[in-house]
Design a protein around this nucleic acid. Structure first.
Lengths: 288, 288
DNA sequence: TATGGATTGGAATTATTATTTCATATTCCC
DNA sequence: GGGAATATGAAATAATAATTCCAATCCATA
Protein backbone atom coordinates (compact mmCIF):
# COMPACT_ATOMS: atom_id res chain seq x y z
CA UNK A 1 0.00 0.00 0.00
CA UNK A 2 2.60 2.49 1.05
CA UNK A 3 4.39 3.47 -2.07
CA UNK A 4 7.81 4.93 -1.50
CA UNK A 5 9.59 6.61 -4.30
CA UNK A 6 10.83 9.79 -5.84
CA UNK A 7 7.29 11.12 -6.06
CA UNK A 8 7.19 11.47 -2.30
CA UNK A 9 7.59 14.99 -1.08
CA UNK A 10 11.04 14.39 0.36
CA UNK A 11 13.02 17.50 -0.53
CA UNK A 12 16.07 16.86 -2.61
CA UNK A 13 19.11 18.77 -1.34
CA UNK A 14 20.10 21.57 -3.66
CA UNK A 15 23.18 22.77 -1.89
CA UNK A 16 26.10 20.91 -0.47
CA UNK A 17 25.50 21.73 3.16
CA UNK A 18 21.96 20.41 3.08
CA UNK A 19 23.13 17.34 1.26
CA UNK A 20 25.82 16.76 3.81
CA UNK A 21 23.34 17.08 6.65
CA UNK A 22 20.93 14.70 4.95
CA UNK A 23 23.60 12.08 4.46
CA UNK A 24 24.84 12.38 8.02
CA UNK A 25 21.29 12.11 9.21
CA UNK A 26 20.53 8.89 7.38
CA UNK A 27 23.94 7.36 7.84
CA UNK A 28 22.73 4.70 10.26
CA UNK A 29 19.90 3.42 8.13
CA UNK A 30 21.85 3.03 4.89
CA UNK A 31 22.80 -0.38 3.44
CA UNK A 32 26.46 -1.30 3.64
CA UNK A 33 27.63 -0.42 0.13
CA UNK A 34 25.53 2.69 -0.03
CA UNK A 35 26.98 3.80 3.30
CA UNK A 36 30.42 3.10 1.86
CA UNK A 37 29.89 5.44 -1.05
CA UNK A 38 28.23 7.99 1.22
CA UNK A 39 31.32 8.12 3.40
CA UNK A 40 33.52 8.38 0.34
CA UNK A 41 31.45 11.24 -1.01
CA UNK A 42 31.76 13.30 2.14
CA UNK A 43 35.46 12.57 2.46
CA UNK A 44 36.31 13.26 -1.18
CA UNK A 45 33.83 15.78 -2.47
CA UNK A 46 36.24 16.98 -5.13
CA UNK A 47 36.43 13.54 -6.64
CA UNK A 48 32.68 13.39 -6.93
CA UNK A 49 32.68 16.78 -8.63
CA UNK A 50 35.26 15.84 -11.24
CA UNK A 51 35.14 12.08 -11.67
CA UNK A 52 32.95 9.86 -13.82
CA UNK A 53 30.54 7.42 -12.29
CA UNK A 54 32.90 4.57 -13.15
CA UNK A 55 36.04 6.18 -11.78
CA UNK A 56 34.37 7.27 -8.56
CA UNK A 57 32.81 3.87 -8.05
CA UNK A 58 36.19 2.24 -8.53
CA UNK A 59 37.89 4.58 -6.05
CA UNK A 60 35.18 3.97 -3.49
CA UNK A 61 35.30 0.23 -4.11
CA UNK A 62 31.74 -0.22 -5.33
CA UNK A 63 29.90 -0.74 -8.58
CA UNK A 64 28.72 2.20 -10.65
CA UNK A 65 25.17 1.03 -10.17
CA UNK A 66 25.55 1.42 -6.43
CA UNK A 67 26.60 5.01 -6.93
CA UNK A 68 23.44 5.64 -8.87
CA UNK A 69 21.32 3.93 -6.24
CA UNK A 70 22.93 6.18 -3.68
CA UNK A 71 21.97 9.25 -5.67
CA UNK A 72 18.43 7.98 -6.15
CA UNK A 73 18.02 7.20 -2.50
CA UNK A 74 18.76 10.85 -1.77
CA UNK A 75 16.00 11.86 -4.13
CA UNK A 76 18.08 12.75 -7.19
CA UNK A 77 17.10 11.11 -10.43
CA UNK A 78 20.61 9.92 -11.15
CA UNK A 79 24.29 10.39 -10.57
CA UNK A 80 24.46 13.39 -12.86
CA UNK A 81 22.14 15.54 -10.80
CA UNK A 82 23.88 14.53 -7.60
CA UNK A 83 27.16 15.55 -9.16
CA UNK A 84 25.74 18.98 -9.93
CA UNK A 85 25.56 19.74 -6.22
CA UNK A 86 29.20 18.85 -5.76
CA UNK A 87 30.17 21.02 -8.70
CA UNK A 88 28.13 23.94 -7.52
CA UNK A 89 29.98 23.79 -4.25
CA UNK A 90 33.31 24.22 -5.98
CA UNK A 91 31.98 27.06 -8.06
CA UNK A 92 30.61 29.01 -5.20
CA UNK A 93 33.64 28.84 -3.06
CA UNK A 94 35.56 31.55 -4.69
CA UNK A 95 39.18 31.53 -5.48
CA UNK A 96 42.05 30.78 -3.19
CA UNK A 97 42.93 33.44 -0.71
CA UNK A 98 45.51 35.09 -2.89
CA UNK A 99 43.53 34.84 -6.07
CA UNK A 100 40.57 36.16 -4.20
CA UNK A 101 42.40 39.18 -2.97
CA UNK A 102 43.90 39.80 -6.37
CA UNK A 103 40.49 39.61 -7.94
CA UNK A 104 39.06 42.00 -5.37
CA UNK A 105 41.88 44.46 -5.86
CA UNK A 106 41.55 44.23 -9.61
CA UNK A 107 37.82 44.83 -9.39
CA UNK A 108 38.37 47.67 -6.97
CA UNK A 109 40.89 49.35 -9.23
CA UNK A 110 39.37 48.63 -12.59
CA UNK A 111 35.68 48.62 -11.75
CA UNK A 112 33.57 51.67 -12.32
CA UNK A 113 30.58 51.57 -9.96
CA UNK A 114 30.34 51.76 -6.24
CA UNK A 115 30.78 48.04 -5.99
CA UNK A 116 34.44 48.73 -6.66
CA UNK A 117 34.66 50.87 -3.56
CA UNK A 118 33.12 48.16 -1.48
CA UNK A 119 35.48 45.57 -2.89
CA UNK A 120 38.36 47.86 -2.08
CA UNK A 121 37.41 48.01 1.57
CA UNK A 122 36.89 44.28 1.78
CA UNK A 123 40.31 43.74 0.20
CA UNK A 124 41.93 46.17 2.62
CA UNK A 125 40.33 44.43 5.57
CA UNK A 126 41.37 40.99 4.34
CA UNK A 127 44.92 42.10 3.76
CA UNK A 128 45.13 43.60 7.20
CA UNK A 129 43.83 40.47 8.88
CA UNK A 130 46.20 38.35 6.88
CA UNK A 131 49.04 40.55 7.90
CA UNK A 132 48.38 40.70 11.59
CA UNK A 133 47.81 36.97 11.92
CA UNK A 134 51.29 36.50 10.50
CA UNK A 135 53.08 39.14 12.50
CA UNK A 136 51.41 39.17 15.91
CA UNK A 137 53.81 38.15 18.66
CA UNK A 138 52.28 35.61 21.05
CA UNK A 139 54.49 36.71 23.94
CA UNK A 140 53.34 40.31 23.65
CA UNK A 141 49.76 39.14 23.69
CA UNK A 142 50.33 37.15 26.87
CA UNK A 143 52.15 40.04 28.52
CA UNK A 144 49.45 42.51 27.64
CA UNK A 145 46.67 40.25 28.90
CA UNK A 146 48.46 39.57 32.19
CA UNK A 147 49.03 43.25 32.71
CA UNK A 148 45.45 44.20 31.97
CA UNK A 149 43.99 41.33 33.97
CA UNK A 150 45.59 42.69 37.12
CA UNK A 151 44.18 46.18 36.69
CA UNK A 152 41.44 47.46 38.97
CA UNK A 153 40.05 49.70 36.26
CA UNK A 154 40.98 49.56 32.59
CA UNK A 155 41.09 52.99 30.99
CA UNK A 156 40.57 53.11 27.24
CA UNK A 157 42.18 55.95 25.39
CA UNK A 158 41.66 56.69 21.70
CA UNK A 159 40.51 59.53 19.47
CA UNK A 160 39.40 60.11 15.92
CA UNK A 161 40.01 57.13 13.71
CA UNK A 162 40.81 54.82 16.60
CA UNK A 163 37.79 55.88 18.62
CA UNK A 164 35.45 53.20 17.22
CA UNK A 165 37.83 50.55 18.50
CA UNK A 166 37.81 52.14 21.92
CA UNK A 167 34.02 52.13 22.06
CA UNK A 168 33.93 48.48 21.11
CA UNK A 169 36.47 47.61 23.78
CA UNK A 170 34.44 49.53 26.34
CA UNK A 171 31.27 47.73 25.24
CA UNK A 172 32.91 44.31 25.44
CA UNK A 173 34.57 44.97 28.79
CA UNK A 174 31.22 46.08 30.10
CA UNK A 175 29.53 42.90 28.94
CA UNK A 176 32.28 40.89 30.64
CA UNK A 177 31.70 42.91 33.82
CA UNK A 178 35.22 44.29 33.86
CA UNK A 179 35.45 47.77 35.30
CA UNK A 180 36.52 50.22 32.62
CA UNK A 181 36.51 53.87 31.75
CA UNK A 182 36.41 55.27 28.25
CA UNK A 183 38.28 58.56 28.09
CA UNK A 184 36.20 60.67 25.74
CA UNK A 185 36.62 64.27 24.90
CA UNK A 186 32.96 65.25 24.77
CA UNK A 187 32.67 66.93 28.16
CA UNK A 188 36.24 68.17 28.21
CA UNK A 189 36.91 66.47 31.53
CA UNK A 190 39.67 64.17 30.31
CA UNK A 191 42.30 65.62 32.59
CA UNK A 192 40.13 65.02 35.63
CA UNK A 193 39.32 61.46 34.58
CA UNK A 194 42.94 60.68 34.03
CA UNK A 195 43.88 62.06 37.42
CA UNK A 196 41.96 59.21 39.06
CA UNK A 197 44.11 56.52 37.49
CA UNK A 198 46.63 54.84 39.79
CA UNK A 199 49.42 52.30 39.24
CA UNK A 200 46.92 49.60 40.21
CA UNK A 201 44.97 50.40 37.05
CA UNK A 202 45.97 50.00 33.41
CA UNK A 203 45.41 51.73 30.08
CA UNK A 204 44.74 50.52 26.57
CA UNK A 205 45.82 53.32 24.27
CA UNK A 206 45.27 53.27 20.53
CA UNK A 207 46.69 55.77 18.09
CA UNK A 208 47.83 55.73 14.51
CA UNK A 209 49.72 58.19 12.40
CA UNK A 210 48.97 61.09 12.27
CA UNK A 211 48.85 60.69 16.03
CA UNK A 212 46.18 62.77 17.71
CA UNK A 213 48.19 65.16 19.91
CA UNK A 214 45.65 64.87 22.71
CA UNK A 215 46.07 61.11 22.85
CA UNK A 216 49.83 61.42 23.10
CA UNK A 217 49.61 64.07 25.79
CA UNK A 218 47.18 62.07 27.84
CA UNK A 219 49.27 58.95 27.46
CA UNK A 220 52.31 60.85 28.70
CA UNK A 221 50.50 62.23 31.71
CA UNK A 222 49.04 58.91 32.66
CA UNK A 223 52.33 57.05 32.29
CA UNK A 224 54.01 59.65 34.49
CA UNK A 225 51.48 58.73 37.16
CA UNK A 226 52.90 55.22 37.00
CA UNK A 227 49.90 53.63 35.26
CA UNK A 228 51.01 50.83 32.91
CA UNK A 229 50.00 51.26 29.27
CA UNK A 230 49.26 48.71 26.57
CA UNK A 231 49.52 50.48 23.23
CA UNK A 232 48.21 49.59 19.80
CA UNK A 233 49.91 51.68 17.16
CA UNK A 234 51.40 51.45 13.70
CA UNK A 235 55.13 51.86 14.01
CA UNK A 236 57.96 51.46 16.45
CA UNK A 237 58.62 55.18 16.03
CA UNK A 238 55.17 55.98 17.27
CA UNK A 239 55.25 58.36 20.23
CA UNK A 240 52.88 56.00 21.98
CA UNK A 241 55.44 53.21 21.97
CA UNK A 242 57.79 55.07 24.28
CA UNK A 243 55.22 55.35 27.06
CA UNK A 244 53.96 51.80 26.76
CA UNK A 245 54.80 48.77 28.89
CA UNK A 246 53.69 46.52 26.02
CA UNK A 247 52.93 47.65 22.53
CA UNK A 248 51.64 46.14 19.32
CA UNK A 249 52.50 47.22 15.84
CA UNK A 250 49.48 46.84 13.58
CA UNK A 251 49.75 47.64 9.89
CA UNK A 252 46.33 48.36 8.47
CA UNK A 253 45.88 48.50 4.71
CA UNK A 254 44.01 51.51 3.42
CA UNK A 255 41.64 52.25 0.61
CA UNK A 256 40.39 55.57 -0.70
CA UNK A 257 42.22 57.34 2.10
CA UNK A 258 40.57 55.38 4.91
CA UNK A 259 42.41 52.70 6.78
CA UNK A 260 40.80 49.44 7.67
CA UNK A 261 40.14 48.75 11.34
CA UNK A 262 39.71 45.01 11.01
CA UNK A 263 43.10 43.94 12.35
CA UNK A 264 42.96 46.41 15.22
CA UNK A 265 39.47 45.22 16.06
CA UNK A 266 40.52 41.59 16.09
CA UNK A 267 43.44 42.38 18.38
CA UNK A 268 41.27 44.52 20.63
CA UNK A 269 38.73 41.74 20.98
CA UNK A 270 41.41 39.19 21.71
CA UNK A 271 42.79 41.42 24.46
CA UNK A 272 39.36 42.00 25.93
CA UNK A 273 38.18 38.41 25.92
CA UNK A 274 41.65 37.25 26.96
CA UNK A 275 41.47 39.49 30.02
CA UNK A 276 38.01 38.16 30.79
CA UNK A 277 39.29 34.60 30.70
CA UNK A 278 42.38 35.35 32.73
CA UNK A 279 40.26 37.02 35.37
CA UNK A 280 38.09 33.95 35.65
CA UNK A 281 41.17 31.74 36.03
CA UNK A 282 42.61 34.02 38.68
CA UNK A 283 39.33 34.03 40.57
CA UNK A 284 39.16 30.25 40.49
CA UNK A 285 42.71 29.87 41.76
CA UNK A 286 42.21 32.29 44.58
CA UNK A 287 39.14 30.47 45.74
CA UNK A 288 40.34 26.89 45.09
CA UNK B 1 61.62 20.17 -44.09
CA UNK B 2 59.95 21.91 -41.19
CA UNK B 3 57.52 19.52 -39.66
CA UNK B 4 55.02 21.16 -37.37
CA UNK B 5 52.96 19.05 -35.05
CA UNK B 6 52.54 17.73 -31.59
CA UNK B 7 56.00 16.21 -31.67
CA UNK B 8 57.56 19.64 -31.64
CA UNK B 9 59.02 20.72 -28.35
CA UNK B 10 56.37 23.34 -27.64
CA UNK B 11 55.58 22.79 -23.99
CA UNK B 12 51.95 22.18 -23.31
CA UNK B 13 50.82 24.15 -20.26
CA UNK B 14 50.13 21.91 -17.30
CA UNK B 15 48.93 24.50 -14.85
CA UNK B 16 46.46 27.30 -15.23
CA UNK B 17 48.88 30.16 -14.77
CA UNK B 18 51.15 28.94 -17.53
CA UNK B 19 48.18 28.37 -19.75
CA UNK B 20 46.91 31.84 -19.08
CA UNK B 21 50.28 33.33 -19.90
CA UNK B 22 50.51 31.31 -23.09
CA UNK B 23 47.10 32.44 -24.25
CA UNK B 24 47.78 36.08 -23.43
CA UNK B 25 51.07 35.80 -25.26
CA UNK B 26 49.59 34.48 -28.48
CA UNK B 27 46.45 36.52 -28.32
CA UNK B 28 47.42 38.73 -31.25
CA UNK B 29 48.23 35.93 -33.64
CA UNK B 30 45.09 33.87 -33.08
CA UNK B 31 42.34 33.58 -35.69
CA UNK B 32 39.12 35.40 -34.91
CA UNK B 33 36.98 32.57 -33.58
CA UNK B 34 39.84 30.98 -31.70
CA UNK B 35 40.58 34.32 -30.10
CA UNK B 36 36.91 34.53 -29.20
CA UNK B 37 36.97 31.27 -27.33
CA UNK B 38 40.33 32.14 -25.79
CA UNK B 39 38.86 35.29 -24.29
CA UNK B 40 35.86 33.36 -23.09
CA UNK B 41 38.06 30.77 -21.47
CA UNK B 42 40.03 33.33 -19.48
CA UNK B 43 36.90 35.20 -18.48
CA UNK B 44 34.86 32.14 -17.49
CA UNK B 45 37.31 29.51 -16.32
CA UNK B 46 34.66 27.83 -14.19
CA UNK B 47 32.47 27.22 -17.19
CA UNK B 48 35.32 25.52 -18.98
CA UNK B 49 35.95 23.33 -15.96
CA UNK B 50 32.42 22.02 -15.73
CA UNK B 51 30.72 22.49 -19.07
CA UNK B 52 30.56 20.14 -22.03
CA UNK B 53 32.23 21.02 -25.28
CA UNK B 54 28.84 21.77 -26.79
CA UNK B 55 27.58 23.95 -23.93
CA UNK B 56 30.79 25.94 -23.70
CA UNK B 57 30.92 26.46 -27.43
CA UNK B 58 27.35 27.69 -27.40
CA UNK B 59 28.02 30.13 -24.55
CA UNK B 60 31.06 31.46 -26.31
CA UNK B 61 29.22 31.68 -29.62
CA UNK B 62 31.35 29.25 -31.61
CA UNK B 63 31.18 25.71 -32.87
CA UNK B 64 32.37 22.81 -30.73
CA UNK B 65 34.96 22.03 -33.36
CA UNK B 66 36.48 25.47 -32.85
CA UNK B 67 36.85 24.72 -29.18
CA UNK B 68 38.77 21.60 -30.01
CA UNK B 69 40.95 23.42 -32.50
CA UNK B 70 41.70 25.95 -29.79
CA UNK B 71 42.82 23.18 -27.47
CA UNK B 72 44.92 21.61 -30.15
CA UNK B 73 46.56 24.86 -31.06
CA UNK B 74 47.75 25.12 -27.48
CA UNK B 75 49.33 21.69 -27.78
CA UNK B 76 46.66 19.62 -26.08
CA UNK B 77 45.37 16.65 -27.97
CA UNK B 78 41.75 17.62 -27.46
CA UNK B 79 39.23 19.50 -25.41
CA UNK B 80 39.29 16.93 -22.64
CA UNK B 81 42.92 17.42 -21.75
CA UNK B 82 42.57 21.19 -21.89
CA UNK B 83 39.66 20.89 -19.53
CA UNK B 84 41.83 18.99 -17.08
CA UNK B 85 43.90 22.09 -16.50
CA UNK B 86 40.82 24.13 -15.67
CA UNK B 87 39.61 21.44 -13.29
CA UNK B 88 42.94 21.15 -11.58
CA UNK B 89 42.86 24.85 -10.92
CA UNK B 90 39.52 24.62 -9.11
CA UNK B 91 40.73 21.71 -7.08
CA UNK B 92 43.87 23.43 -5.90
CA UNK B 93 42.59 26.86 -5.20
CA UNK B 94 39.78 25.46 -3.18
CA UNK B 95 41.87 23.48 -0.89
CA UNK B 96 44.12 26.41 -0.16
CA UNK B 97 41.35 28.79 0.86
CA UNK B 98 39.49 26.22 2.86
CA UNK B 99 42.55 24.88 4.51
CA UNK B 100 43.50 28.35 5.52
CA UNK B 101 40.30 29.10 7.36
CA UNK B 102 40.03 25.60 8.72
CA UNK B 103 43.54 25.85 10.09
CA UNK B 104 42.68 29.11 11.81
CA UNK B 105 39.49 27.66 13.23
CA UNK B 106 41.26 24.52 14.34
CA UNK B 107 43.93 26.56 16.06
CA UNK B 108 41.24 28.67 17.65
CA UNK B 109 39.31 25.67 18.92
CA UNK B 110 42.13 23.37 19.80
CA UNK B 111 44.79 25.81 20.94
CA UNK B 112 45.24 26.47 24.59
CA UNK B 113 46.72 29.96 25.04
CA UNK B 114 45.39 33.36 24.27
CA UNK B 115 46.68 33.09 20.77
CA UNK B 116 43.73 30.81 20.12
CA UNK B 117 41.35 33.58 21.07
CA UNK B 118 43.04 35.94 18.69
CA UNK B 119 42.94 33.39 15.88
CA UNK B 120 39.26 32.91 16.55
CA UNK B 121 38.53 36.58 16.04
CA UNK B 122 40.62 36.71 12.90
CA UNK B 123 38.79 33.68 11.54
CA UNK B 124 35.41 35.20 12.38
CA UNK B 125 36.35 38.44 10.66
CA UNK B 126 37.63 36.62 7.56
CA UNK B 127 34.51 34.52 7.33
CA UNK B 128 32.29 37.56 7.63
CA UNK B 129 34.16 39.43 4.92
CA UNK B 130 34.05 36.39 2.69
CA UNK B 131 30.36 36.12 3.23
CA UNK B 132 29.40 39.70 2.61
CA UNK B 133 31.45 40.00 -0.53
CA UNK B 134 29.49 37.06 -1.91
CA UNK B 135 26.07 38.18 -0.84
CA UNK B 136 26.05 41.96 -1.12
CA UNK B 137 23.57 43.18 -3.69
CA UNK B 138 25.05 45.81 -6.00
CA UNK B 139 21.68 47.36 -6.71
CA UNK B 140 20.99 47.93 -3.02
CA UNK B 141 24.36 49.58 -2.66
CA UNK B 142 23.62 51.93 -5.53
CA UNK B 143 20.18 52.73 -4.15
CA UNK B 144 21.49 53.43 -0.70
CA UNK B 145 24.24 55.70 -1.97
CA UNK B 146 21.88 57.68 -4.20
CA UNK B 147 19.49 58.13 -1.32
CA UNK B 148 22.18 59.26 1.09
CA UNK B 149 23.90 61.51 -1.42
CA UNK B 150 20.74 63.58 -1.74
CA UNK B 151 20.40 64.14 1.99
CA UNK B 152 21.07 67.55 3.52
CA UNK B 153 22.17 65.97 6.80
CA UNK B 154 22.94 62.31 7.33
CA UNK B 155 21.85 61.09 10.76
CA UNK B 156 23.67 58.07 12.11
CA UNK B 157 21.76 55.87 14.51
CA UNK B 158 23.27 52.92 16.40
CA UNK B 159 23.71 51.71 19.96
CA UNK B 160 25.68 49.16 21.91
CA UNK B 161 27.47 46.72 19.67
CA UNK B 162 26.79 48.73 16.52
CA UNK B 163 27.92 52.00 18.06
CA UNK B 164 31.57 51.67 16.99
CA UNK B 165 30.43 51.49 13.39
CA UNK B 166 28.37 54.61 13.84
CA UNK B 167 31.32 56.52 15.27
CA UNK B 168 33.49 55.48 12.35
CA UNK B 169 30.84 56.56 9.87
CA UNK B 170 30.57 59.91 11.62
CA UNK B 171 34.34 60.31 11.58
CA UNK B 172 34.59 59.47 7.89
CA UNK B 173 31.67 61.66 6.87
CA UNK B 174 33.27 64.50 8.77
CA UNK B 175 36.56 64.04 6.96
CA UNK B 176 34.68 64.08 3.67
CA UNK B 177 32.95 67.29 4.75
CA UNK B 178 29.51 65.77 4.58
CA UNK B 179 27.14 67.17 7.16
CA UNK B 180 26.16 64.50 9.64
CA UNK B 181 24.78 64.00 13.09
CA UNK B 182 25.54 61.08 15.34
CA UNK B 183 22.57 60.30 17.53
CA UNK B 184 24.15 59.39 20.84
CA UNK B 185 22.46 58.72 24.10
CA UNK B 186 24.98 60.44 26.39
CA UNK B 187 23.11 63.68 27.00
CA UNK B 188 19.67 62.11 26.72
CA UNK B 189 18.62 64.59 24.03
CA UNK B 190 17.97 62.03 21.31
CA UNK B 191 14.33 62.90 20.92
CA UNK B 192 15.16 66.55 20.38
CA UNK B 193 17.88 65.74 17.87
CA UNK B 194 15.58 63.45 15.93
CA UNK B 195 12.87 66.09 15.82
CA UNK B 196 15.10 68.24 13.61
CA UNK B 197 15.27 65.64 10.84
CA UNK B 198 13.17 66.31 7.74
CA UNK B 199 12.37 64.32 4.59
CA UNK B 200 15.24 66.17 2.93
CA UNK B 201 17.64 64.39 5.28
CA UNK B 202 18.45 60.69 5.57
CA UNK B 203 19.38 58.16 8.22
CA UNK B 204 21.85 55.31 8.42
CA UNK B 205 20.55 52.98 11.12
CA UNK B 206 22.48 49.97 12.32
CA UNK B 207 21.12 47.33 14.65
CA UNK B 208 21.61 43.64 15.19
CA UNK B 209 19.76 41.07 17.22
CA UNK B 210 19.04 41.52 20.06
CA UNK B 211 17.87 44.86 18.72
CA UNK B 212 18.33 47.75 21.08
CA UNK B 213 14.76 48.91 21.78
CA UNK B 214 15.84 52.54 21.74
CA UNK B 215 17.24 52.19 18.23
CA UNK B 216 14.02 50.65 16.97
CA UNK B 217 11.88 53.30 18.63
CA UNK B 218 13.98 56.11 17.25
CA UNK B 219 13.95 54.55 13.80
CA UNK B 220 10.18 54.33 13.93
CA UNK B 221 9.79 57.94 15.00
CA UNK B 222 12.15 59.22 12.40
CA UNK B 223 10.57 57.19 9.60
CA UNK B 224 7.15 58.52 10.59
CA UNK B 225 8.55 62.00 10.04
CA UNK B 226 9.14 60.92 6.44
CA UNK B 227 12.91 60.71 6.70
CA UNK B 228 14.27 57.92 4.48
CA UNK B 229 16.27 55.24 6.28
CA UNK B 230 19.12 53.04 5.09
CA UNK B 231 19.38 50.11 7.49
CA UNK B 232 22.16 47.65 8.17
CA UNK B 233 20.84 44.67 10.07
CA UNK B 234 21.12 40.92 10.28
CA UNK B 235 17.87 39.43 9.09
CA UNK B 236 14.88 40.19 6.94
CA UNK B 237 12.77 39.79 10.08
CA UNK B 238 14.63 42.58 11.77
CA UNK B 239 12.27 45.31 13.00
CA UNK B 240 14.60 47.81 11.35
CA UNK B 241 13.90 46.38 7.92
CA UNK B 242 10.27 47.46 7.98
CA UNK B 243 11.11 51.12 8.46
CA UNK B 244 13.89 51.21 5.93
CA UNK B 245 13.81 52.45 2.35
CA UNK B 246 16.88 50.30 1.62
CA UNK B 247 18.29 47.66 3.89
CA UNK B 248 21.28 45.36 3.96
CA UNK B 249 21.42 41.96 5.54
CA UNK B 250 24.86 41.37 7.01
CA UNK B 251 25.70 38.05 8.62
CA UNK B 252 28.62 38.45 10.98
CA UNK B 253 30.37 35.37 12.32
CA UNK B 254 30.93 35.34 16.03
CA UNK B 255 33.55 34.04 18.39
CA UNK B 256 33.47 33.73 22.16
CA UNK B 257 30.12 35.45 22.21
CA UNK B 258 31.26 38.56 20.38
CA UNK B 259 30.34 39.14 16.79
CA UNK B 260 32.81 40.46 14.28
CA UNK B 261 32.21 43.94 12.93
CA UNK B 262 34.44 43.60 9.90
CA UNK B 263 31.75 43.08 7.29
CA UNK B 264 29.58 45.85 8.70
CA UNK B 265 32.59 48.16 8.78
CA UNK B 266 33.45 47.43 5.17
CA UNK B 267 29.89 48.12 4.09
CA UNK B 268 29.73 51.28 6.19
CA UNK B 269 32.90 52.60 4.63
CA UNK B 270 31.71 51.77 1.15
CA UNK B 271 28.51 53.70 1.79
CA UNK B 272 30.37 56.66 3.21
CA UNK B 273 32.99 56.95 0.53
CA UNK B 274 30.38 56.14 -2.11
CA UNK B 275 28.30 59.08 -0.95
CA UNK B 276 31.36 61.30 -1.02
CA UNK B 277 32.07 60.34 -4.59
CA UNK B 278 28.48 60.72 -5.70
CA UNK B 279 28.34 64.17 -4.16
CA UNK B 280 31.40 65.21 -6.10
CA UNK B 281 29.85 63.94 -9.33
CA UNK B 282 26.62 65.77 -8.62
CA UNK B 283 28.49 68.98 -7.91
CA UNK B 284 30.42 68.71 -11.14
CA UNK B 285 27.27 68.17 -13.20
CA UNK B 286 25.50 71.11 -11.65
CA UNK B 287 28.40 73.41 -12.42
CA UNK B 288 29.32 72.03 -15.89
C1' DT C 1 16.67 -24.15 8.07
C1' DA C 2 13.46 -22.54 4.69
C1' DT C 3 11.44 -18.23 2.63
C1' DG C 4 10.68 -13.58 1.29
C1' DG C 5 12.53 -9.19 0.76
C1' DA C 6 16.26 -6.24 0.31
C1' DT C 7 20.84 -5.55 -1.52
C1' DT C 8 24.52 -6.15 -4.66
C1' DG C 9 27.43 -7.26 -8.85
C1' DG C 10 28.12 -7.24 -13.57
C1' DA C 11 26.90 -7.03 -18.21
C1' DA C 12 23.72 -4.96 -21.72
C1' DT C 13 21.67 -0.90 -23.19
C1' DT C 14 20.94 3.75 -23.88
C1' DA C 15 22.42 8.48 -23.60
C1' DT C 16 25.48 11.84 -23.97
C1' DT C 17 29.60 13.94 -25.47
C1' DA C 18 34.03 14.50 -27.90
C1' DT C 19 36.05 14.24 -32.14
C1' DT C 20 36.53 13.85 -37.10
C1' DT C 21 35.41 14.93 -41.60
C1' DC C 22 34.26 17.53 -45.39
C1' DA C 23 32.15 21.28 -47.74
C1' DT C 24 32.23 26.24 -47.66
C1' DA C 25 33.95 30.66 -46.60
C1' DT C 26 37.59 33.86 -45.71
C1' DT C 27 42.11 35.77 -45.88
C1' DC C 28 46.50 36.71 -47.60
C1' DC C 29 49.95 36.95 -50.98
C1' DC C 30 51.58 37.03 -55.73
C1' DG D 1 41.98 39.69 -59.24
C1' DG D 2 43.15 34.81 -58.86
C1' DG D 3 44.71 31.02 -56.32
C1' DA D 4 46.56 28.76 -52.39
C1' DA D 5 46.46 28.42 -47.61
C1' DT D 6 43.91 28.95 -43.69
C1' DA D 7 39.77 29.22 -40.99
C1' DT D 8 35.01 28.07 -40.08
C1' DG D 9 30.45 25.68 -39.87
C1' DA D 10 27.64 21.71 -39.67
C1' DA D 11 26.73 17.16 -39.57
C1' DA D 12 28.46 12.29 -39.22
C1' DT D 13 30.93 9.26 -36.41
C1' DA D 14 33.40 7.36 -32.65
C1' DA D 15 34.13 7.24 -27.85
C1' DT D 16 32.81 7.48 -23.41
C1' DA D 17 29.82 7.45 -19.73
C1' DA D 18 25.29 6.91 -17.36
C1' DT D 19 21.66 4.00 -16.56
C1' DT D 20 18.95 -0.18 -16.51
C1' DC D 21 18.15 -4.88 -15.91
C1' DC D 22 18.48 -9.30 -14.14
C1' DA D 23 20.61 -12.94 -11.76
C1' DA D 24 23.13 -13.91 -7.56
C1' DT D 25 23.73 -13.10 -2.78
C1' DC D 26 22.83 -11.71 1.73
C1' DC D 27 19.96 -11.13 5.79
C1' DA D 28 16.24 -11.27 8.82
C1' DT D 29 12.37 -13.78 10.34
C1' DA D 30 9.27 -17.66 10.99
Amino acid sequence: MSLDGPTMDERIPRDFETLRATILDRRESLPKRIAQIAAYALDNPDDIAFGTAASIAASAGVQPSTLIRFAQQLGFDGFTSLQQVFRERLRERNSSYDERLQALRAKAEGGAGHRAIFDGFVAAASTSLDDISRTLDDAHLEDAISLLAKAQTIYVLAKRRSYPVATYIAYALGKLKIRNQLIESAAGLNAEMIAFATPADAVIAISFSPYAPATIEEARTISEQGVPIVAITDSSFSPLAQFARVWFEVAEADFAGFRSLSATMALAMALTVGVGEKRRDMGRKRKG
